[in-house]
Design a protein around this nucleic acid. Structure first.
Length: 198
DNA sequence: CTAACGATTCGCT
DNA sequence: GCGAATCGTTAGT
């Protein structure tokens, strides 16, 4: 399990890069499901128009983004999809990393059942809404600890060569003006488990 | 209280 | 490639 200090990093873009190649695990009702993170996006609470908590905007929903790093920020998108983010930085600094793609590892049968899919294909965990559903993550669990028994992140044996990382603009945030062009999306080159979005 | 909208996905053409 | 689905959150009245 990654220790608290991993999440206290005050550079959320750096955390987004470091999360690639880590294992994201959930264990609900004693059933373990997991996958290697292959795609992320960074959102910064200060001077980032794409962030829900931009420039100190506090609402009931975004309050967990202001927690000390090491909890999950999960919210409902389009009324259907539960998107999972890793909250980082110290208390009152509303930074988070959206997890956008996973390579399935543990509990594939369970994930197939949750996704109502007949067989293992890339749409099992490629895309932020898809992977959250596969892991059984619900927006009502927003604020859950990443140092607890239900959701956590682990190191893996595989080292990620920075040459295998692609940085590009974030997806679906055209409303964010100049910040829409920031290269804060990271993905593993040649992974078939990254999101369908361009 | 009301209305507009979204860090997306899926199915159909 | 395109449009519908679907509902909590938010800002405004």
């Amino acid at each position: 399990m990654l220790p608290r200090y991993f999440y206290l990093n005050d550079n959320v873009v750096d955390v987004a890069r470091r999360l690639i190649g880590k294992l994201l695990v959930t264990e609900f009702g004693g059933v373990r499901t997991s996958g290697v993170i292959v795609e992320t996006e960074a959102y910064c609470g200060r001077n980032d128009q794409a962030c829900h908590a931009n420039n100190g905007s506090r609402t009931p929903r975004t309050e967990v983004m202001y927690c000390e790093g090491g909890v999950g920020y999960i919210y409902l998108c389009y009324g259907i999809h539960h998107l999972f983010n890793v909250v980082t930085n110290k208390k009152d600094y509303a930074d988070a990393v959206l997890i956008r793609g996973l390579e399935p590892v543990d509990g594939i049968e369970t994930m197939l059942k949750r996704r109502k899919l007949p067989s293992l294909k890339r749409n099992l965990t490629a895309g932020p809404g898809a992977l959250a559903q596969a892991l059984g993550i619900n927006y009502r669990d927003s604020g859950i600890s990443l140092l607890g028994p239900q959701v956590w992140i682990e190191r893996t044996n595989k080292e990620i060569d920075s040459k295998r990382l692609i940085a590009s603009p974030r997806v679906g945030i055209e409303y964010a003006g100049n910040d829409a062009g920031l290269p804060w999306r990271f993905r593993l080159r040649d992974s078939r488990w990254v999101s369908p979005a361009r």
